[in-house]
Amino acid sequence: MKQATFDPTNIICGAFFILVGAVFAWQSLEVELGSWLRIGPGGMPLALSLLLILLGLIILLAALREVGEPVGAIAWRGIVFITLAPIIFGFTVRGLGFVGAVFITALFASFASLRMTPLRALLLSAALAAFSTAVFSYGLGLPFERIGPWLR
């Protein structure tokens, strides 16, 4: 296998910081920059963005002369199910209510792992929903509707 003569991870890393710096710089130009003596809301963000771009460049340039490992495996399945779980909670907590939202969130997150069987996932989610409702809703009296309007 041919050894790469650059560090792919750090090239992505440098590029990422440059990109983020550029986006933030563009955002900070939308508000007033102010002057040295009376710094505006955009002054500090712009300075930091430019610094971030500079650091990104340093990382990028250094990466071109180093040898490094590739990025490695990526947990695609995990990304989909895990990061969507809180979003699903957000979408359902008002409609389904607390019980339903906890159940669906846990169920969805369960599918992130290949080791989880559907039956176990259902049981786990139901138990979690019951436990959370008992503790947070009945026990601590959190002000969330247990059963939301979608189910009424």
Binding site: V99, A134, R152
Partner: peptide, 20 residues
């Protein structure tokens, strides 16, 4: 398992509640 049944019963009861 009991808690599961309880939560299903709870959900069922909620459906039966009068609307509006």
């Amino acid at each position: 398992m009991k808690s599961l049944l309880a939560s299903i019963a709870l959900a069922g009861a909620a459906f039966a509640l009068p609307h509006a």
